[in-house]
Amino acid sequence: MPVLNPTAPAAAERSIRTALHPATRRAPHPLYLDHGALDLALPLPVHRLSPVTGSAAPPDARLTGWRFLLTRDGRAVGAAETARTPEGWAFSHFCEGPYIASTERAVRLAESLPAPYQPRLLSVPELYMLTLWLHSDPAADPAEGSPQPQDLLIPLAPAPPGIAADRAVRTDVLLPVLSTRLAPVGLAS
Results as ranks from 00 to 15, higher is better:
residue 2 P to Y: 02
residue 167 R to L: 11
residue 31 L to M: 07
residue 167 R to K: 12
residue 154 I to E: 08
residue 63 L to H: 04
residue 150 Q to D: 15
residue 93 H to D: 14
residue 152 L to M: 10
residue 169 V to E: 08
residue 185 V to I: 15
residue 158 P to G: 13
residue 188 A to T: 12
residue 9 P to N: 10
residue 94 F to G: 05
residue 1 M to K: 11
residue 139 A to S: 06
residue 163 I to W: 00
residue 66 W to C: 09
residue 31 L to A: 15
residue 184 P to W: 01
residue 176 P to E: 11
residue 122 L to F: 07
residue 118 Q to T: 04
residue 128 Y to K: 13
residue 170 R to E: 03
residue 91 F to L: 12
residue 5 N to W: 09
residue 28 P to S: 11
residue 43 P to G: 11
residue 169 V to F: 01
residue 121 L to Y: 01
residue 33 L to N: 10
residue 77 V to Y: 02
residue 76 A to C: 06
residue 48 R to I: 04
residue 129 M to F: 03
residue 169 V to A: 00
residue 135 H to K: 10
residue 75 R to Y: 02
residue 169 V to W: 06
residue 147 P to N: 04
residue 154 I to L: 11
residue 105 R to Y: 03
residue 134 L to A: 10
residue 143 A to L: 06
residue 49 L to N: 04
residue 46 V to E: 11
residue 145 G to A: 08
residue 121 L to W: 00
residue 100 I to G: 03
residue 161 P to D: 14
residue 43 P to A: 12
residue 34 D to F: 02
residue 85 T to E: 14
residue 57 A to R: 06
residue 22 P to D: 11
residue 89 W to C: 04
residue 120 R to V: 11
residue 90 A to M: 07
residue 46 V to Y: 00
residue 154 I to Q: 05
residue 50 S to Q: 13
residue 80 A to V: 04
residue 186 G to Y: 05
residue 152 L to E: 01
residue 62 R to H: 12
residue 2 P to S: 15
residue 60 D to A: 14
residue 132 L to M: 04
residue 46 V to H: 05
residue 103 T to H: 05
residue 92 S to E: 12
residue 122 L to E: 10
residue 63 L to Y: 00
residue 22 P to T: 07
residue 93 H to V: 12
residue 68 F to R: 09
residue 71 T to W: 02
residue 132 L to H: 02
residue 34 D to Y: 03
residue 178 L to G: 08
residue 43 P to E: 10
residue 18 T to I: 15
residue 185 V to S: 15
residue 27 A to V: 05
residue 161 P to F: 08
residue 73 D to M: 09
residue 61 A to E: 03
residue 153 L to A: 01
residue 45 P to K: 06
residue 48 R to V: 13
residue 68 F to T: 08
residue 93 H to C: 13
residue 88 G to M: 07
residue 109 L to P: 02
residue 141 D to I: 06
residue 118 Q to V: 09
residue 36 G to Y: 05
residue 127 L to I: 01
residue 145 G to P: 03
